[in-house]
């Protein structure tokens, strides 16, 4: 199928997916060097979801994401250096070193985190949309969550409340087939996740989350419908994570063959091949993107390395608006 988009657009999408891939690869490397600690959840394999969705949303829209959110944060505009510094725990990180990999935030970009309790971000998204509705704002709140979150009561409660109060939330389910190490068929009674929302009166659709162009188109359509109707909608993005759940995961629950099979649908490779066979781009374009990205990532690491550690004397900062003691 021919790509029905411009050369510049293809290059933008490819560049952003490559930026995420290289940032994640560097993060894994720095984790093994113990520069980054704690939990680290990589987005490798799922880049088309974040890139397609964030290209489709408007700058003024609200974003609520999960603990696998480096990619979303980067494409939303948080500089790679601030993301890397946050993973280092440095004061120049995007959350001042208080959050780490799972808790990236940016108030100016309406990036509301970085949530590490599965399902916990959904009520927050509903509330953000409620605030917008009460203030007469026209923005959409885009809420990312995984297939595991659909098991949680808060998922069902949030769909019900958003539908009941007609709130402009776009629920984006990043279905990567595993709730940590538990396969979809082991954790949901109905493997077709998009069957859930209609029970609450919410229109739902599914899209191939390995195809960035399809994701961008679908999210754009859904987001604009949410904006027009001021009612929630739901989109399932079928994807797959190529790397372990986190750096602690020995991947005992799936076979190497299964992972290899999915790697054939690599979102970056498939877009590159399609764009090249359509004559939209050349290898020189890819090389230029890789060179730019290598520079960006190496500067990000330098930024993190150069950053200061916050003084221990300030440990209670940001607990309250004003220190209580």
């Amino acid at each position: 199928m021919t790509l029905d988009i411009s050369r510049d657009h293809v290059l933008d999408l490819l560049r952003d997916m490559i930026r995420i891939r290289r940032l994640e690869e560097k993060s894994a490397e720095l984790y093994s060097k113990q520069k980054i600690r704690g939990f680290l959840h990589l987005y490798i394999g799922e880049e088309a979801v974040g890139v397609g969705a964030l290209h489709a949303l408007r700058e003024d829209d609200n974003i609520v994401a999960t603990y696998r959110e480096h990619g979303h944060a980067l494409i939303r505009g948080i500089p790679a250096g601030e993301i890397m510094a946050e993973m280092y725990g440095k004061a120049n990180g995007c959350s001042g070193g208080r959050g780490g990999s799972m808790h990236l935030f940016s108030a100016e970009r309406r990036f509301y985190g970085g949530h590490a309790i599965v399902g916990g971000g959904l009520p927050i998204a509903v509330g953000l949309a409620l605030a917008d509705k009460m203030k007469g704002e026209s923005r959409v709140t885009a809420c990312f969550f995984g297939d595991g979150a659909t098991d949680e009561g808060e998922f069902h409660e949030s769909l019900n409340l958003a539908a009941l109060w007609k709130l402009p939330v776009l629920f984006l389910c990043e279905n990567n087939e595993y709730a940590m190490g538990t396969a979809l068929y082991r954790h949901v009674s109905d493997r077709d996740i998009a069957n859930n929302p209609p029970a609450y009166g919410i229109p739902a659709d599914s899209v191939n989350g390995m195809d960035v162009v399809a994701v961008e188109r679908a999210v754009h359509n859904e987001a604009e419908l949410v904006r027009e109707t001021s009612q929630p909608r739901f989109l399932e993005l079928k994807t797959y994570r190529f790397r372990a759940h986190s750096m602690y995961d020995a991947e005992l629950y799936r076979s190497k063959e299964e992972v290899e099979e999915h790697k054939k649908e690599d979102p970056i490779e498939s877009l590159r091949e399609r764009a090249m066979s359509d004559g939209l781009i050349t290898q020189a374009d890819i090389d230029a993107i890789e060179a730019d990205t290598a520079k960006e990532i190496s500067e990000a690491v330098e930024f993190a390395e150069r950053g200061d550690w916050e003084s221990v004397e300030d440990i209670t900062r940001h607990t309250y608006a004003r220190d209580l003691s």
Binding site: N62, Y112, G120, L122, P123, I124, A125, V126, G127, L128, A129, L130, A131, D132, M134, K135, G153, E154, E157, S158, N160, L161, L164, W165
Partner: peptide, 28 residues
């Protein structure tokens, strides 16, 4: 009804929605 809202019986989600609304500039 906009400002005095009866909620469904979902304590976790309506408290969470209150938190979200507070993040969004309201005073719930």
């Amino acid at each position: 009804e906009e400002r005095v809202r009866d909620t469904p019986l979902c304590e976790s989600t309506f408290v969470g929605a209150g938190i979200g609304a507070a993040l969004g500039g309201m005073r719930p």
